[in-house]
Design a binder for these strands. Structure first.
Lengths: 186, 186
DNA sequence: TCCTAATCTTGTCATTGACAAGATGTCACT
DNA sequence: AGTGACATCTTGTCAATGACAAGATTAGGA
């Protein structure tokens, strides 16, 4: 179906999303160009509009897909809250394009039903992953603990992606994340 | 000097930075338009180029100014690491435009000397603020503790700005941050 | 005064997002 | 097989933008 001689592409929607991931990795979500995606997919400049309406539509689809992939990644670290945090950071780094779109609501339609559902699924997995965290001595608010855990993992991931962490942390995000996250898990 | 009848603006650089803060608060840093800033300042569309070269130049100046303001805000919470964290979150929320640019290196020139200096100043204040954190029972790596503290504050601030936190956290970022950050400070 | 540099303007070009209208392919139904 | 409705893709167009070039205006010192 990648035969460029056919009038119909055959799988353009998927091809555009894949091209978007590449493009975002290269230039970031802000500089993403629909026309560039069309060129990458070998179709005309107006073809993307049919599948996504506009740029926000495409990024909405990407974000929804990203939340599902994140839920999947967190599920893999079943039971171990520390490893769930590591998986969160790992997702942000290895699937950077998804992550960068997911947490920038100004790029997509935050009221999209499919997106809201996907985000809710990821949120449920995330809260479940944190539930097994060892609590302090004082009576704790589980909501607060989940927020703290989410914050530290999200913050470390964001700072890593922003490239502002000192060189000392090394180049292995999983190991670095585990070291930092352990500060909360003890 | 704000007299629009004069050929020279008089304080265009400052006016453009102020207009940029407004515009970013309205549409975000990605959708920022130099021509819109020029209109807001009452000058021609090419006037900004003389002061900042291009868009990245303007955002570089904004980011550098932001790091200095952050350092200033952190210094105000002198000595108390918990309040330093609260001040960090408060800065992100109340001076959102600065914060959103500062941690998106793809928007500006990360090799700018003035920016690097400002960021180093802010980093020094941040590390100093965390130094007084109560350590756990085990022998600790102060660098790790600083990273954990930075991560949790930065993560909470980022999640707050992204608007993905549950309604339960309320609408007061300072109080909410204090509650979450205490999880690390005990 | 004059002159040099800084500041701002006008004009231009390629790129982009969005929209409209038309061409082509696909598929269900007869 | 034939046909019509719909999905998919194309071509054409427009306003907005970033960047650049060249010229006008002003400020401030020799």
């Amino acid at each position: 179906m990648t035969d460029s001689r056919t009038y119909h592409h055959g799988d353009l929607r998927r091809a555009l999303l894949a091209a978007a991931l590449e493009a975002i990795d290269e230039v970031g979500p802000a500089a993403l160009s629909l026309r560039d995606l069309a060129r990458r997919a070998g179709v005309s400049h107006a073809a993307p509009a049919h599948h996504f309406g506009d740029k926000a539509g495409l990024l909405t689809a990407l974000a929804a897909q990203g939340f599902d992939l994140l839920a999947q990644a967190l599920t893999a670290a079943d039971g171990d809250p520390l490893e769930a945090g590591v998986a969160y950071v790992d997702f942000a780094v290895t699937r950077r394009a998804y992550f960068e779109v997911m947490f920038r609501p100004e790029f997509y339609r935050a009221d999209d039903a499919e997106l809201i559902a996907a985000r809710a699924r990821a949120g449920a997995v995330l809260r479940a992953g944190v539930a097994a965290l060892p609590t302090g001595s004082a009576p704790v608010d589980p909501g607060r603990d989940a927020l703290a855990a989410w914050s530290i993992a999200h913050g470390f991931a964001t700072l890593w992606l922003a490239g502002v962490l000192p060189d000392r942390v090394g180049d292995n995000p999983r190991d670095a994340a585990r070291t930092v996250l352990r500060r909360l898990a003890t």
